[in-house]
Design a protein around this nucleic acid. Structure first.
Lengths: 153, 153
DNA sequence: TATTGTTATACTCTATAACTATA
DNA sequence: TATAGTTATAGAGTATAACAATA
């Protein structure tokens, strides 16, 4: 009942609350680019997924949803779907120049509020970098089944 | 590009991925009780919010959504809306005996998979407890504006 | 026969606004 | 006039199934 004990479910609650806060800050920091389009651009730029499905796995986005998302990004001229010679069913997603520009602009704002949030969470700059490394590495570990399909990336 | 550097947005990605994993495990661990109904029961039991709005703030659930959620919980006989004498517009939510039973059963399963997840994230039992404390405390700090309204709890 | 991506459809979740009853 | 809760409606997000092209 007191403020400093924790009950089963508090971990999930804390993670969900932090994510809500993250989304709020993203929306006010990055104009003209939604959080998911941003993540798509970021993943394409930094991980170069083999095809749309691998991209979707990494972001936890269903392939049907990703189709609509990519339709908009293509319409906005930020990405292109290019054929893959070795498998003509699949498409590789690449950034256009405009997409790279948009991503670069957004990333500087995201980096700023992420540092701010990590500071709010009690981490200094060095700890913050370490925490992100740790989370990212942990999430890639086989224990987390939400990411099992990510191996294909 | 390498596996161990991180880009702007990785923090948000890691948190979102952990939350997805959490939701997956919740669904397979707790049958007959959704994650949000569980959180409602848990919040009512452990924080005893003053009214529905305070309850909604804590969970990041809009009051209109909470109405539907509570309708179902009432229909299932897990909670009751009781009048508040000092403000007859508002209602206080209380658990029924069945609600307390359901919560207790669910909590043992949640505690188990939370411990398992925290271990997957690289924490031992002591670290895990500390991490949950830390996250919960951090989220209550004024820096995070998603929780500003929580003061009313 | 299985897989990649697309399309169509429906369903869930969530938000907006209007309404009531109180304050 | 403002607030707690409810209701109605619409919108966004997401999932399911069926389809085409290819493996």
């Amino acid at each position: 009942m007191s403020e400093d004990t924790h009950a089963p479910g508090d971990f999930g609650w804390a993670v969900a609350t932090i994510l809500r806060e993250y989304q709020l800050r993203f929306e006010e920091a990055v104009d003209c680019l939604g959080i998911r389009p941003f993540q798509v651009l970021s993943t394409v730029a930094h991980r170069d997924p083999a095809n749309q499905q691998a991209l979707g796995f990494h972001l936890g986005i269903d392939r049907t949803v990703l189709t609509y998302l990519l339709d908009r990004l293509v319409a906005d001229g930020l990405v292109e779907r290019v054929p893959i010679p070795t498998d003509r069913r699949a498409r590789r997603i690449i950034l256009t120049d405009a997409g790279r520009d948009a991503l670069t602009r957004a990333e500087s704002r995201v980096a700023a509020f992420e540092a701010d949030m990590l500071a709010s969470l009690g981490a200094d700059a060095a700890q913050a970098a370490a925490l992100v490394q740790e989370l990212a590495a942990a999430v890639r570990r086989p224990g987390l089944r939400a990411c099992e399909a990510m191996e294909e990336l």
